[in-house]
Design a protein around this nucleic acid. Structure first.
Lengths: 172, 172
DNA sequence: CGTATTTATTAAACTGGTTTAATAAGAAAT
DNA sequence: ATTTCTTATTAAACCAGTTTAATAAATACG
C-alpha cells in the first residue's frame, strides 16, 4: 500500500517500545524502514508470536484494523525502529479517490491471502522441524537478531522443543 | 461476490464428480446452492482436506485462481451438488466496470483474511480436541453428512486420533 | 436379504513434542 | 572482572498424538 508518499510520516521507536498494545483501536499502517517488530498476543500467560516484521514489510494489526475492533495484540520494537506511517483515514481517502488504487488495495489483500494460505498449509502439512528449517532458509537473518525463544514461539513450540530439534539436526 | 445475477450459470454435479482436478487452471467461481464439496490435496499419498463447502459458500481454488497457476487440488462432490458458477472473465468485467464493485471485491478479500487469520490462530493456539469441539459447535451438520475420516483430515489428525479424542470426551 | 465394502474403533508400540527443574553459557552493568 | 540477568541446553517424567494391524459396525448393492 505505498500510495502517495505525501501521506507518510516518519516515526521512530526505541527498543522495547510498543507501537501497539491490547485494547487500542488501529489508526495506522506502518512501513518498516529499519528495525524489527514482533506482533504477538498473550494467551494464558505466555506470549504467542504471530509475526516478525523487518525491513520492507507493511504491517499493522490487520485483523483488528479490518474489523475495527480493539486490538488483542502487541507490536513491540525488538530493536530501535524507524517506520513510515500512514493513517487509516488517509488510506480510505486514497481508496475513495481512485478506482486504480482501490484495485491496488484488493490485489494487496490477494497477496496477503496467498501468504496466509501457505501458512495454513505449512501448519497443517509440515512438522515442527520442517517449519524450523524452512524459516532458517527463508529468513536466516532473523536468527541473528531475535532470541531463540521468540522464534520458538513463532514456530508454535516451546524453547525446550526447539532446542531439541536443533540438537537432533546437529547430530546428523 | 454476488454481482450481477445475469452472469451466473446453474450447474449440477453427481456425488463423486470432480469440479476441479490438479493441473487445471481456474476458470470459475462457484456459489453452493445445494450439496457439499471437499477441497483437498494429496500429500504423499494421503488426502488433506482443506475445507468443506456447503450451502451458501462461495468457493473455488482461490490460491490457484489468484496466482493463475495450475491447481494442486481437488474439488470433489461429496453429495449431488447444485452450484451457480461465474467465469473469471465475467468477474474481471464486473471489477473493470465499477469502482463500487471493485471495492466489494476488496472487502470480500478482507473477510477472507479474517477467516484465515482465525484459522491460523486456531491451528497455533488450540489443541486438536479443542478444534474438534469448535467444529462440532460451528458446523454440527457436517458430522451428519461427511465421513469421520474426512473430518479428521480437515482437523489435521488421523482417523485413529479423532476416534481417541471422541472416546476420551465420551468417558467424561 | 446376505454378502461385500467402507468406515470407525480399539490395542500396542512408538514418537515428538510437553512440563518442570537444574545447569550452563552469554550479555550487560557496575 | 565479578556479579547479575537473560537466554539456551539438558534431563526426566509425561502426554497426545502417530503407525500398524485386527476387529467391529455401518452401508451399499447384486
Amino acid at each position: 500500500m505505498e500510495f502517495g508518499l505525501r501521506f507518510y510520516k516518519k516515526r521512530t521507536f526505541k527498543k522495547g517500545d510498543f507501537l501497539l498494545k491490547p485494547g487500542q483501536y488501529i489508526e495506522h499502517f506502518y512501513f518498516m524502514k529499519q528495525g524489527c517488530v514482533s506482533y504477538y498476543t498473550i494467551e494464558n500467560g505466555t506470549s504467542q508470536v504471530m509475526e516478525f516484521y523487518t525491513e520492507g514489510y507493511f504491517f499493522t494489526d490487520l485483523y483488528a484494523y479490518i474489523q475495527e475492533i480493539p486490538s488483542a495484540s502487541y507490536l513491540e520494537a525488538l530493536e530501535d525502529v524507524t517506520v513510515y506511517s500512514i493513517t487509516k483515514a488517509d488510506v480510505q481517502k486514497v481508496f475513495d479517490h481512485s478506482h486504480q488504487l482501490e484495485r491496488f488495495g484488493r490485489l494487496s489483500m490477494q497477496r496477503t491471502f496467498v501468504i496466509n494460505f501457505q501458512r495454513i498449509n505449512d501448519l497443517r502439512n509440515l512438522s515442527n522441524q520442517e517449519r524450523y528449517l524452512q524459516l532458517l532458509k527463508k529468513r536466516p537473518e532473523l536468527f541473528q537478531r531475535v532470541p531463540q525463544y521468540l522464534i520458538a514461539s513463532y514456530l508454535g513450540i516451546t524453547p525446550v522443543g526447539l532446542s531439541k530439534i536443533r540438537k537432533r539436526l546437529s547430530e546428523k
